[in-house]
Design a protein around this nucleic acid. Structure first.
Lengths: 237, 237
DNA sequence: CGTCAAATAAAAAACGATTATTTTTAACAA
DNA sequence: TTGTTAAAAATAATCGTTTTTTATTTGACG
């Protein structure tokens, strides 16, 4: 049924078939930044990229400019654009901000629960569990990409009923950046820990309607992600 | 002698004399959006604006694109840009998000206090008080604009020591939007209430180092601002 | 009269070239 | 060698036009 967005833009939804060139390019560059194909701090050569994508200067510039929106790219006076750097401090700040914002978004979402949402969440959790069984239980690393997709889907589903557009927007931005650190730190390797227990706790408390327990579980989940990633790996590697 | 930024960009600081055309235009359009010269929901005609500012299409497009960053402008598939609308629900959401984020930024800032900061805050409060004495005490509405400036300066000063760039960024965005509602709802009229007591409470608790009392005071201040503005005025007016 | 579709007008998106700025290279003098 | 500066190259910013898309009008036909 509902195809989830791996990390795509949050609101396009309807099948607007014909995207504008700017949007297409923007999405592809974003993908490269998040995946690390364009490394942190690396310069974005408008002319090179424009030739590669077969678009004009202004189109490329506007596409890149729009990545300033979520802070994946920075711009400096007369010296163009560059990919936002990755630093430990930044990851720490993102983690703290996520704990704050995601927790609140979750509180709101959970207090607006509905039957549809409950069904969606059960479905999302079910799919995620199956992937995790294969990825972690059976140790099949080829499911890492699917896990990204469905993990993201599960977390989106949790805050689905939060009706504060600003919190949702900030949450999405932070999640995107977090994911970038994730990609950088673990690469294609499998997860450094068994997240199944954490996800179960989040799911159970959410379904049970125990808001504060669920919030605590999410906060712990986010924090643990930071600790594990930074302990086992190194940003300068 | 530190000139405060009325609501300007938070980080340029150094006297980078020659701004790029895009930046100049961007700032002016932002000003128009916040002030209401460009009304909520209004379309941004690239061609008209470009002629008015004497720049090319691409420059104007890129300038407007960059206002997407802080959400003052929205863009729709093949039908250009328009000024973000103003709605009561949005103002409510902004208020809630501000309470959450500003409170946390304040907690961090206050726990990183320093002598320099204390002096800055005393100075900022002093200047604000003087303006408020004239604006509210003596009822001189011609100080309304100065009040905007120094009120903003006082609040910036409070969170000055928050070292989480993300929270600061979100706070700044929300403040900008909040200010836009403020402008729309009270216009050039003077404040609907006496904020002197609130500011005093914030200042006193901050100096005293009573973090949670200060946070509570800020939250109340933000909430009161919403209540008073929405009770006395009407968005559709 | 009202509906539908072709023709026209308006506006957005995309283009590729020109101009300004920064960075690199190279020449020369201390 | 080292430091300074001027020319050259590279890259960023800006420009004005062309193409594509969407909105509006017009007019034939039911």
């Amino acid at each position: 049924m509902n195809e989830p967005h791996p990390l795509a833009s949050g609101d396009k939804s309807q099948g607007t078939s014909k995207k504008t060139a700017i949007e297409t390019v923007q999405e592809q560059i974003r993908e490269r930044v998040i995946s690390g194909a364009l490394g942190p701090g690396e310069r974005l050569h408008v002319d090179k990229l424009r030739l590669e994508f077969g678009v004009s200067t202004s189109t490329m510039r506007e596409a890149i400019s729009r990545l300033l929106i979520d802070g994946l790219v920075t711009s400096e006076q007369q010296r163009g654009f560059r990919v936002a750097p990755l630093t430990l401090k930044d990851f720490r700040d993102i983690t703290d901000a996520r704990k704050l914002i995601e927790a609140q978004a979750l509180r709101i979402s959970l207090s607006n629960r509905s039957d549809v949402w409950e069904a969606d969440l059960v479905a999302a959790y079910h799919r995620l569990s199956r992937i995790e069984e294969r990825l972690i239980g059976e140790g099949k690393p080829e499911f890492a990409h699917d896990w990204d997709t469905w993990n993201s889907n599960f977390h989106d589903c949790l805050v689905q009923n939060c009706d504060n557009a600003w919190l949702k927007r900030f949450r999405r931005t932070l999640h995107q950046h977090s994911y970038r650190y994730h990609r950088r730190l673990i690469g294609d390797r499998s997860l450094p820990r068994d997240v199944r227990i954490e996800h179960k706790a989040i799911f159970d408390t959410a379904i049970a309607g125990d808001i504060e327990a669920c919030v605590a579980a999410i906060e712990a989940h986010i924090e643990k992600s930071y600790t594990d990633l930074t302990q086992q790996h190194d940003l300068s590697e």
